[in-house]
């Protein structure tokens, strides 16, 4: 920070204190305490938790960025507070301040330090993104960061106004309204939409990917603990956007297998009515899907509200 430009005596004859040192000494404990608190006390509880690999990545990203941000913020605030107290205007002092137009050394140091912080954050972010297979973010239809090992569990997420449904293609392609995942397995979400853009957000899993009509958006994760998952829509999709919430479950592998077996037989009649499993669906089939829902005694909210989806050909 601005180096003390010598110890010039001020008007009253007192020696000018070394402001830079004083600010540094004030800043150091603040920054240290803040960082220790963030790392040890706050860090383990930062959102979105550590229920899955992607959530853990996001948690560590937020933690590390907080650790880097806190000293910077502390420096500006401590410096500001010091300046406002020490360099405030005193009654009766009508002189102007010292005519300092700039200081190349200070400016270069500042630019250098901020550049190093920023570039290291960019590198860190890229590593965190590539490491756990895309960190739970939507990767489009041709993901470049994939989990190692065999084919992950395929779960299709279908967004429509205003509900989420899930299809399990490896288990006969049945469709349910409840998200069920096994612990310890790689999961591949294939996210698409039947009408407008939604965003599939499984909060505890740290998965967020837009559900675009006619486009398959892939996100990976690997649940590491069992428990509940809050699913929400994170992109304004019309009137009942706020109500597009469901609860998912991460269960043990055996419980998951038992659930798929039951669901597969229970929903067999419905599965026959569904369009065959594909990565995207022609939204013109929305009306057809509505009939499927009615047949199954469900109240599908999809389609219909906004009137004709497509330009009418004359």
């Amino acid at each position: 920070m601005p180096a003390a430009d010598g110890t010039v005596a001020d008007g009253a004859g007192r020696p000018e204190p070394n402001h830079g040192l004083r600010i540094f000494l004030l800043w150091l404990p603040v920054a240290l305490v803040a960082d220790l608190l963030i790392w040890f006390v706050w860090g383990p509880h930062l959102p979105p938790g550590a229920m899955s690999t992607s959530a853990a990545t996001q948690q560590s990203a937020i933690k590390i960025m907080s650790v880097m941000a806190a000293p910077v913020m502390a420096l500006v605030l401590v410096y500001g507070a010091y300046a406002l107290v020490v360099w405030r205007h005193r009654e009766g002092d009508d002189e102007d301040g010292p005519p300092i137009h700039g200081n190349t050394r200070v400016s270069v140091t500042w630019i250098g330090v901020t550049s190093v912080i920023v570039l290291s954050l960019a590198v860190f972010g890229t590593v965190e993104l590539a490491g756990p297979a895309g960190a739970g973010a939507g990767e489009g239809n041709t993901p470049i960061w994939r989990p190692s090992g065999g084919t992950p569990l395929q779960v299709q997420v279908i967004g429509q106004q205003w509900r989420w449904t899930y299809r399990y293609p490896q288990f006969g392609g049945f469709e349910t309204t409840s998200l069920m995942l096994p612990v310890g397995e790689n999961v591949q979400f294939n996210i698409t939409s039947l009408d407008v853009i939604h965003s599939f957000w499984a909060y505890q899993l740290g998965v967020k990917a837009d559900a675009n009509p006619d486009i398959n958006n892939v996100a990976y994760t690997k649940p590491e603990h069992t428990g509940q998952v809050q699913v929400r829509c994170a992109e304004l999709c019309g009137l009942w956007h706020a109500d597009m919430t469901t609860v998912g479950q991460v269960v043990s592998l055996s419980a998951f297998n038992a659930w798929t077996a039951t669901a597969r037989t229970q929903l067999a009649a419905l599965t026959k009515e569904l369009p065959p499993y594909t990565l995207t669906y022609d939204p013109n089939a929305v009306a057809q899907l509505g009939k499927v829902f009615q047949k199954a005694g469900l109240s599908g909210a999809g389609g219909g509200f906004y009137g004709s989806q497509y330009p009418v050909q004359p």
């Binding site: 959102p47 979105p48 992607s54 990545t57 996001q58 990203a61 937020i62 960025m65 941000a69 910077v72 913020m73 920023v118 954050l121 860190f124 972010g125 965190e128 993104l129 960190a135 739970g136 973010a137 965003s199 957000w201 909060y203 740290g206 998965v207 967020k208 994170a234 992109e235």
Partner: peptide, 19 residues
């Protein structure tokens, strides 16, 4: 400004985006 840096990082943004 500092909260903006969080949003620039893809993993952190995945939790924060749209909230």
């Amino acid at each position: 400004g500092i909260s903006g840096v969080y949003l620039s990082d893809v993993p952190a943004d995945t939790t924060e985006h749209g909230t």
